[in-house]
Structures are given as C-alpha cells and as structure tokens.
Amino acid sequence: MSTQTISGSLDEYDDNKDMCPICKTDRYLSPDLKFLVNPECYHKICENCVDRIFSLGPAQCPYKGCDKILRKNKFKTQVFDDVGVEKEVDIRKRVFNVFNKTIDDFNGNLDDFNKYLEDVEDIVYNLDHGVDVEKTEERLRTYEELNKQLILNNIERSKKDIENFSQRQQFEKEMKLKKKLLERQIEEEDRFNKEWAKKEIVNRLMSSSGNDTTDVIEGVKNTVKLKKSSARRKLEELNRVLKDNPYFAANNMGQNNRIKSSIPYTPFNGDRDLHQRFEVDETKYNDPLVQELEKRKDYIASGFRTDFIYERVLTEAFMGLGCVISEERA
C-alpha cells in the first residue's frame, strides 16, 4: 500500500508519533493529548490546535505546503496508526455507503454481482491512489444521484438485517435452552426407567414360577420403551421446528421477502380512528346509573368495566357527527 500522495509533506513532521507537530506538545507531558485528522489531507493535529485554529471557521491546514481548507466538524479521531490505512478505510466506507447493492439486487446472479464488486474496487483504488480523482468523484456522485431510492432502501435493509440477526440469536438461545432442558429431562427419565426396569425384572422373576427369564426381561424392556416417549416426542418436535426455522427460511427466500418485511407492522391495518373526538375521563363523570353497577359483586365478577360502557357511548356520540347526508347521499 502506497502512501505517497500524502507522505511527501508528512515526513518532516512524522518523526515523533507522540508530539503535535504544530504546538509541539508531547504526550509524555500531557497524557490527555488527543490527535485528530481531517479526511481532506489526513494531517495529524492535536485537539487543542484544532480548537484554536478552526473554531472561527474553515481555515487552511497548518502543515507547511498543504493548501487544503479544513472545517472543524470534519476532524475525527485517528483509528489506525497508519494514516494510509485510515484513509483507505474512510474511502471504503464512503464508497460502500453509496454502492451498497447486495447479491439480492442482482437476483442472485453471482457473475453480475462480482462484476459490480470489481467496479467498486476500481473506484476505491482510484480515490485511494489519486488516480483520476475528479472523474471518479464524478462517477460516484452520478451514481448516487441516479440510485438514491435504491441506496436508501438498502440502508434500511441492512439496519433490519442487524435487527433480525439479534432477534435470531435470541430465538436460537431460547430454543437451545429448551433443548437442554428436554435432554436433561430425558436423561433423568432414562435413569429412572433403568432403575425401575431392574426392580421390575427382579420382582417379576420372583413372583413368576419357572417362566422363561428372557421373556420377562423382554417384556419389561418393551414397557420402558413405551414409557419414555413423551419427552422424546417433544424433543423431536423441537428439532423439527429448528429445522424449519423460519429465520433460515426467511433468509433464503431472497428479495421478495425482504421487501415485504421492510413494511412496518401495522396491527390494525388502518382499522382504527387515530383522532377520536373524545377522551374517556371517568373522574369527571357523574353517572349514578353506571357507577352503581360498578360496585355490584355480580358485575365485578363478570368482568364488567365501566370504561367499556363509556367508550362505547362516547364513540356512538361522535360516530357520524362528520357525515353530511345531504351532501354525501346526494
């Protein structure tokens, strides 16, 4: 990886990693010293200097020979020691935020998807190495312009994916727990059955007179087999559920499913008045007829609720208030 485009003017400053090249403050002396870089030129400057130099507005980079105009809000903490790496990571982030198609956008066609990825790599390379920067930037902008909707959708989608992922983890955790429980239960049953079989065989052998020993043992074993089915059945059922795991199914169904799931869940599908013209406020009602009933045992035990009564009569009071028959039925 080459860092030549920015290293030229960097060298003379870069001999001390822990010193701000501008104010010469050293990290040994002030341990709180934090370095920031600006993606315009990736020149490392300490926080204090950034504050001082750029607080009043955009200004030129203080590095000698660097003519970039920098804004304070674009400064960020340097993550990687190597500014070259830092820069490439930033470029990737920026490009992939725009070129955010997934294989689903190619209806699963791997060749097309690979070709697309190669194109994107070219763009990253060009920007990183200063090749045709203007032209490449232009390409990025044009693409963004043309694919705005798609890009937004894909951002939504990846948010969902993260959400789905954590929900799936939760689901699997729950199921694993259940499996463990069942397995333990089965183990216990098995142990119990073994004990029981032992005793049973001894009992039967003692009470039976001269029967074939093997018959008795077979008989007891068969009973045990029948007995232990319940927990096993449940385990089988659980395994079946895990096999048909809807999470995996959903992931394999591809784009169609994705589009559907991007619609937020609507409990009522619109079948609800969002702006009811009233509010039930039982504290303000004097309604002796209803309030009397509220105290009666047979009403309380039945599940009678005054708010149901109030909600109902108030709904009917305003239901149709806004319908004008003379206009609507004309």
Binding site: N164, Q167, R168, P246, S261, Y265, P267, F268, S302, G303
Partner: peptide, 26 residues
C-alpha cells in the same frame, strides 16, 4: 382468568409477539 384484566384485542394486536421474528407468513 380475570376477565377485567384479560387483554383486549387491541392489546393482543399490539403485543410483542407480532413484532418479533418470524414475521407472519403471507
């Protein structure tokens, strides 16, 4: 058991069950 505190259909429809995955089948 208690009908007074049993959920109504609104509470049921707003329950977590319908929001978590798996999403209801088409």
């Amino acid at each position: 058991m208690n009908p007074q505190t049993r959920w109504n259909t609104i509470q049921c429809l707003e329950s977590e069950y319908f929001k978590e995955l798996p999403a209801p089948s088409d």
